[in-house]
Nucleic acid binder design. Sequence first.
DNA 1: GTGAAAGCGCTAACAG
DNA 2: CTGTTAGCGCTTTCAC
Lengths: 351, 351
Amino acid sequence: MLTLDQVARLSGVSRTTVSRVINNSPHVRPATRDKVWRVIQETGFQPNLVARSLAAGRTRMIGLLIPRPVTNLFNDPYFSVVIQAVASACNAHDYSVTLWLAEPTFERHMARRLLNQTLVDGVIVSSAQLDDPVLHALIDSKRPCVVIGRHAASDCLSYIDVDNRGGAFAAVRHLIDLGRQRIALISGPRNTAPGLDRHEGYREALAQAGLPYDSALAEESDFTYEGGCQAMRRLLNQHPDAVFAGGDILAVAALHVIHGAGLKVPEQVAVVGFDDLGLAVSARPPLTTIRQPVHQSGSLAVETLIDLIDHPEHKPRHLVLPTELIVRTSCGARCAQVSDVNCRSTGLETA
Amino acid sequence: MLTLDQVARLSGVSRTTVSRVINNSPHVRPATRDKVWRVIQETGFQPNLVARSLAAGRTRMIGLLIPRPVTNLFNDPYFSVVIQAVASACNAHDYSVTLWLAEPTFERHMARRLLNQTLVDGVIVSSAQLDDPVLHALIDSKRPCVVIGRHAASDCLSYIDVDNRGGAFAAVRHLIDLGRQRIALISGPRNTAPGLDRHEGYREALAQAGLPYDSALAEESDFTYEGGCQAMRRLLNQHPDAVFAGGDILAVAALHVIHGAGLKVPEQVAVVGFDDLGLAVSARPPLTTIRQPVHQSGSLAVETLIDLIDHPEHKPRHLVLPTELIVRTSCGARCAQVSDVNCRSTGLETA
DNA sequence: GTGAAAGCGCTAACAG
DNA sequence: CTGTTAGCGCTTTCAC
């Protein structure tokens, strides 16, 4: 493989000049530049990124850390979308991503490694538990870092969150407006921000409507289909007339258990989910849900991080993106015929 | 941040010795080793990976390239599982992954970049189109490379494939054994290996049973929910009594369209899918499907690649992993009550 | 504008 | 067993 020196020799200039050319330095005479470019084209020279990184002190690579819930990755498109958004934004900014899926076994090992990892210029952390120690370690490391989602200690960190509380509030409020009275909740783990915040929104909406909060109606689950099924089975004993599930996968699980019990959705039990990442459109009946801008979170995280890498002196940036109620048929607001509507993502409408 | 030199000075040895210690060289006296380790512990020294990579000529990092179908990432858990499997296997072998999600715009740009990318020791390519030029470029680059899935030119490349043809054959055979006569197909694009090979398996099974191949019953689609819906709508005019969908997401789409037309699954139309990555268990009714070992493909790909990195002289390795028929209720082989069974992944059984 | 020289922080012969 | 000596391939002052 070619080196700068060889290209320099071939084009009759110094290594420095070639370096300037490939880095688009303005201080090169056009004629020289052309001459060098020609050789680069002919030889297909590509600079050695490792060497470049060492000399420049920057790798143009960021780390994407997804701490816990490896199992969720299977069914829940959330992380797919995050990963895709981050990768895509990195592409656009000429950065690379390296992916760290933390597994329990490697947790400590990794935390250490990534902190002093000089192979990345910064890191994005997605969906930590509220008390995840990794984040504290990251803060201590002084390394540029952006969190996707909220975290107990994230005030001193930049983060991009979505309005989980507001979304949950809107979901429950919607059910109340439709006349539902016994509204159950299936939430994610309350030691995670989405679990906690959506729970809050649920309580608030009940409170504002003067409805009692009944802890027997508020199930805590994990974000898995199986967990959702179990929670819903317990809830059936409480005879709810509506369920707000803090995640579409939980909502889908709820739908199935409800159907399995011979009840009708939305007539007997209305269901509203949270996410709108694809599961919702293809559920039966199509899910009314809260859309969260996951893709946007990802790209904003990348942009925020790059800004932080370029300007370490910048203050932490805190963004909370709005969520949006998407009304379909699982809530009973309207009962579209089971036809084309299910199959088009363009069939989505805002209430 | 500390350097080897400083650690060397602090522990009163040479830089080389410290290097030996952190690389577990056996040629260090235990006493010296301990002395150095103590300093490393106290100072929290972490070697600079970029410098190490430059000197050693290896980065311990591999690239995972997912060429085309970015859109699929949203709904289809296939890529989630691949990504997760690869990341996890890398973890286990003390490698890192960098993720390249090829977007149309960046295709050419990327191909170039990744080929001469000295930042990775090798690359894994997942799910290319059969004629994807990226693969030819990779072959030319002489860089260690493993393909997940089959490819037109992959004989000179190592690959890990699953038995798509055999799986499709088993699926259709199963339907035939259940007495179905007008068996439709919804396949993925035929310029992809899974699209093509599952189509082949379908034809073979028909042929072996003496059933005619009717091209009006064999729909080509993409691997999206919407595509599956459209294909199924066209198929309804042909009045099939069974559908083999070459992907669970297509099968789920088929289910919905069939239901939407007022037909019963499996009584009037039996459905069998392909993948078994989570969608199948949570479909209504639970999908009979062909399970493909995606996770295993990922880890084998990593192991094969690492072997190739360590031993570039090794011959390309070709693995085809077996698939497995998983019988649930959508095919009519048995009609379990809609109860717990849907919610347990342990409820899976082999026919 | 261009080049010479000095590293970036580490590994790897080669001596001792 | 340990240290000395060269680099790995590039960027970056600093002169000219």
